[in-house]
Amino acid sequence: MSQVSVEIPPGYQKVFGRPRALSDAPYTYCPGCHHGIIGRLIAEAIDELGIQGRTVGIAPVGCSVFLYRFYRCDFIQAAHGRACAVATGLKRANPDLIVFSYQGDGDLAAIGTAETVHAAARGENFTVIFVNNQIYGMTGGEMAPTTLPGQRTVTTPQGRDVALTGYPLKISEMLAQLDAPAYITRQSVHDARHVQLARKAILKAFRNQLEGKGFSLVEVLATCPTNFRMPPVEAQKWVTEKAMQFFPLGDLKVRDE
């Protein structure tokens, strides 16, 4: 990437910069896509906990397929939906690793529902970051398991008709019913205040793993401006006006002991 060649006048101190766990590789996401913010929050958590040298990330199928390029830590690609099974294998084989999966709604809540639910039910000691943007991004904006009633996608051109395709899956609410998970929460990154809350949640989800507390999942509501067919700023309004109405924010399960 380009070198920042701006002269910083004396007396100024850097208060915000790229986390060390992020590599120099530019993100491959579309302009305004929230994946980038969420990805940075993970890197900040890795930095803060000092775990870069023992972290293994699991890159999903979808827009984050290049995730392995963006971090300075070990990475593996998982088949669509299988990240929680792969994470189980990694963590059981080497419990000293800090393992996280990063999955979209199609990956985690459709093709990978079984793997997710059962990893949560077993209380597997890893961290899941679940990006819920209510759409399949990479393949061109098809209906996701989280697509809102009435939402237009390329496979619901008249809007999602619940009589035909049912209702969105509230994965976090479902997982919160299980006994084993340590932490299930839903966050958003549509403004700076919520980014701070999401940051704390992601940090907690990683810290839980370090402390051996078990399965932690942070669902993050996000935009897909390209497939919402909206400018990025307008797409953020979708989060507050539509998505958050169906997917309320907050902790769904916190097991502190």
Partner: peptide, 21 residues
């Protein structure tokens, strides 16, 4: 003011923020 809200919201982690001590 160097509040860094812009950087918090930058999806491409393209912003560095400096603040007068």
């Amino acid at each position: 003011t160097g509040c860094a809200i812009c950087a918090q919201m930058c999806p491409d982690v393209a912003i560095e923020v400096y603040r007068q001590q």
